[in-house]
Deep mutational scan, measured.
Amino acid sequence: VTLFVALYDYEARTEDDLSAHKGEKFQILNSSEGDWWEARSLTTGETGYIPSNYVAPV
């Protein structure tokens, strides 16, 4: 399991995006899409895309 933590708040801009709150942890499901990674929030269980530069490894 690849875990990352949000460094900043991010507000989803499309229905495919996933909002993130600073300190929230995510499981990365797919990081092969360049700057946008598919992730699952460990807080809400929701999945979507987050900007890779907004997260760091735990």
Rank of each mutant, 00 (worst) to 15 (best):
V1P: 13
V1R: 11
T2I: 14
T2P: 14
L3Q: 08
L3C: 15
F4H: 08
F4P: 04
V5I: 12
V5L: 05
V5H: 05
V5A: 04
A6M: 09
L7G: 02
L7W: 04
L7R: 00
Y8V: 08
Y8K: 07
D9R: 01
Y10N: 00
E11P: 06
E11I: 13
E11N: 08
A12K: 09
A12I: 03
T14A: 11
E15I: 11
E15D: 12
D16Y: 15
D16T: 14
D17S: 12
L18I: 12
L18H: 02
L18K: 01
S19P: 11
S19I: 04
A20E: 00
A20D: 00
K22S: 06
K22A: 11
K22L: 06
G23E: 04
E24L: 03
K25S: 06
F26N: 01
Q27D: 06
Q27A: 09
Q27I: 15
Q27C: 14
I28E: 00
L29S: 04
L29Y: 06
L29K: 04
L29R: 03
N30V: 08
N30R: 07
N30S: 10
N30T: 08
S31Q: 13
S32M: 12
S32Y: 10
E33V: 11
G34F: 08
G34Y: 09
G34S: 13
D35E: 12
W36M: 15
W36P: 04
W36E: 04
W37K: 02
W37E: 00
E38M: 15
E38F: 15
A39P: 00
R40G: 01
R40T: 11
R40V: 10
R40N: 02
S41C: 06
S41P: 00
S41W: 02
L42V: 09
T43V: 11
T44K: 02
T44L: 01
G45S: 05
G45A: 04
G45P: 00
E46S: 09
T47D: 02
G48V: 04
Y49L: 14
Y49T: 06
Y49I: 08
Y49M: 13
P51K: 07
S52E: 03
N53M: 11
N53Q: 11
Y54F: 12
V55C: 05
V55P: 01
A56Y: 09
A56V: 13
P57E: 08
P57M: 09
P57A: 09
V58E: 09
V58A: 09
V58Y: 11
